[in-house]
Each structure stands twice: as C-alpha cells, then as structure tokens.
Write a protein that binds this DNA or RNA. Structure first.
Length: 390
DNA sequence: AAAGCGCACAACCGCACGATA
DNA sequence: TTATCGTGCGGTTGTGCGCTT
C-alpha cells in the first residue's frame, strides 16, 4: 500500500517562487512560526504550494541569517574534512557551518569544490544521459538488468556509488595530504571511546565540535557501511571453489558464520562493507573473509584488510576482475588515482597507472597499510593510502 | 547570429524514520 | 500492532545564463 501524497499535486504550484510568495511565507512564519505543521501551512496563508516546498523555501532561502555567496577557505576546509570522514551527510556538515544550508553545501561541493580539489569535471547531464557503457550496462558485468532481484540493479548501483564515493574520498584525502603535508598514515583504535583517531586535521576539528555533532558518537565509516554487493555467477563460483552452487552454499554458510558475512545465493550476496577506518576487529573479520575467499584473478592469501576490500569493490565494479599480471588479472589504467606526493619521485605527476602487484595490504610492526606503488620499477615507491594499528 | 554546451543554483522527488492514533 | 502522517534527508532534475564553436 502506497502512502498518500503530501498534497494534491494537481493543484499546487511548482517552480520558482515569486517575491509575493516569499513575502507571504516569511511574514507568516516570522509572526506565527510554522505551527509544527508544514503540510497545513500553505492553506493557512493561501499559498498554492506543497508544504514540503514551503519548508524547503524557508530553510534554504528565507530563514534569517542564511549566508549566500562564496564560501571561505575555512568553510571549504571544514567541508572537505567532514566529507572525507562522513561522506555526503550534508545536514551534519551544514550543522558545522552556521548560516549554510545542506542544499548550499551540496551544490557547492558538486559544482565547485569537488572539481577544485579532485581536478574532476562533474559529468554534465547531457553526458550523464549517455554514460559510460560500463555503467550503462549496469556496472560492467555486475548486473545486466534492473530491479527484480533483491540486490541486483539498485544494490549494485548503490554499491558502485558508494565505492565511487569512497574512492573520491581516498583521492581527496591524498590530495589534501599533498596540500597540507603530514603523514599519510592514520591510526584507529578498536575501542569506541575515546573517539578513534581519524583523518589528520579532521580529528582536531571533530574534537572541537564534538558537542555540536548529533548523537553521542562521532559518525564514522565503520558505521552505516553495510551494502549489498552483487557479483556475477562466474566470480562467485570462482571465489567459492569449483564445487558448484551446493558446495558454494555450504562454504558460504561457513564463511557467513566465520566472517559475519551474510552470503546469499550465488549471483548476489550481502556482506559487511568495511569502512576506511574500521576498528581492528572489523579488519580481522576482513582478514578472515579475504583470506578465505580467493579473489578473482588470483588475489588471495592473508593480510587483506578493509582498505583493500573497499578498493577492490570499486575496481571490480568498474573494471571487472582485477589481479596481478602474474595471475592473469585485468590491469586497468586508473588515471584518476594520482600520486599525491609526486614531488618525492621523478616525474611529479606520476599516476597509479596500475595496481598490478602494487595494490596490497601490508603489515609492518603491527601497522597495516594499503599501499600502491608505481609500475615504473626504477622508481618503485610505495604510496600508502591508509592504515590502522592493530 | 545561432546552436550547443557547461555551469550554478533552486527546487523537486522519493525514501526512511519517528511519532501518533 | 499497524496504518498513517509529518518531517528530514540526499539525490536528482529544471532552468536560466554565459561562453564557445
């Protein structure tokens, strides 16, 4: 049963607000408040608008002390830091910037800041309509149809979107490190309190604003990162061994209990999506999962962790099986992954043109790192994307 | 000059969630 | 317990303007 619409769409006006409408709404709210009921408000003041539309207009434009116009550097920094840490939770980010609305910040990010910091051009809507064939086909070989299945289509899209966002955040972090200097390596502790150390710069900010953030705990990637991941039949078969669906199901069951993953029928499954800075317990979980399930293209063995997990999902969703050359894996060019500290090596603009034999999850003195290195062996140089301490 | 394109901003849409009857 | 309602949120779309070809 669908829910009733919030208003009669046929009789409400849509589109830009006129100055008269603005004046009516503003005058009424300033005098009477919203009355706690936005839906009823337009009728009260004789506006042919949906209540939601009134609310949005008030919050984003008419409300007192709304700032419009250019963002300051400090505001940009706060937006970047929070975006790296919590992603597109615009309302939370907006709460840290007095006078700015989530809509404003979202627009600013999408149209300016992202390009400025990541050097990307947001795809135009015309371009979007004629998207990357991989995406247009449902995420490479991830899924070929829409809807229907429990995790096909929408879930694959969601996973891809999340991974793309995750990569964007990796890139942003790398870029910021390049700008601000400092160590690439961040640590995280298992215990929830005190608040785990987060990305450099951000931590101080979060501590400073801790009391302003909603809820008692800081939002982190480790929270709210369960997503559906769809994998094609061949990969699931490959991953779970040659025993076919029956054996795969048994193995999946075992893996499920061992790794906390909720495997579903071959073709799609759900599992814990580990964040960039998962606590070590989650990393251990990832270790079990990753070491137990040989990756397509031959990646396997112990030692993979949440970063690899995240990156692998992204690479897989975009390019299909990813693996080392030795394992016959497909090595995609990744021009968007740019070396952040290029100055440290010859050829300042060196890129991660491959992850072959380089995207790995290493351990040194109890410190786990996801690192990549250049394919140019003469300039072999590790770039640590992130890490955590055990 | 005109069409195409990119950009920025405002507004809309649909979903999730909590409150409540 | 369940259906409904109101609100908040994030993603997406509409639209106008200026620039480029």
């Amino acid at each position: 049963m669908g829910r009733a619409p919030c208003c009669d769409k046929a009789s409400v006006k849509k589109g830009p607000w006129s100055p008269e409408e603005d004046a009516k709404l503003k005058a009424y709210i300033e005098e009477n408040g919203t009355g706690g009921n936005w839906i009823a408000l337009p009728q009260k003041i004789g506006l042919k608008r949906c209540g939601k539309s009134c609310r949005l207009r008030w919050l984003n434009y008419l409300r007192p002390n709304i700032k419009h116009g250019d963002f300051t550097e400090e505001e940009e920094h706060i937006i970047c830091s929070l975006y790296i840490s919590i992603g597109s939770r615009w309302s939370i980010i907006a709460a840290q910037l007095p006078g700015r609305t989530d809509n404003d910040i979202k627009n600013y990010w999408n149209t300016k800041l992202k390009k400025k910091l990541l050097g990307k051009r947001a795809p135009s809507r015309r371009a979007r309509a004629n998207q990357d064939p991989y995406l247009a086909a449902g995420g490479g070989n991830m899924c070929s149809t829409s809807g229907g299945g429990n995790s096909c289509g929408g879930a694959a899209t969601a996973a891809q979107a999340l991974s793309a966002s995750a990569l964007e955040r990796i890139q942003l972090h790398m870029r910021l490190q390049g700008i601000y200097g400092g160590s690439f390596v961040c640590t995280n502790n298992h215990s929830a309190a005190p608040a785990p150390q987060q990305w450099p710069k951000l931590e101080a900010l979060l501590h400073a604003n801790k009391q302003l953030l909603p809820g008692s705990s800081l939002p982190t990637d480790a929270m709210a990162t369960t997503v559906s991941v769809h994998q094609p039949q061949h990969l699931v078969d490959q991953s779970l061994g040659a025993g076919g669906a029956g054996e795969a199901a048994v193995q999946a069951e075992q893996l499920s209990s061992a790794a906390g993953a909720d495997y579903m029928a071959p073709g799609s499954f759900e599992r814990q999506k580990l964040g960039f800075y998962s606590p070590s317990a989650e990393a251990e979980t990832a270790g079990v999962e990753m070491s137990s399930v040989p990756m397509a293209g031959g990646y396997g063995g112990a030692g993979f962790g949440p970063h690899h997990d995240e990156l692998y999902d992204f690479l897989y969703s975009k390019y299909g099986p990813v693996g080392g050359l030795a394992q016959g894996g497909h090595i995609p060019p990744l021009p968007e992954l740019q070396c952040p500290d290029g100055a440290a090596v010859a050829g300042a603009d060196e890129k991660f043109s491959t992850w072959a034999a380089s995207c790995d999850y290493g351990t040194a003195a109890g410190h786990h790192q996801l690192q990549g290195n250049s394919i140019n062996s003469s300039l072999l140089h590790d770039y640590v994307i992130g890490g955590y301490d055990q």
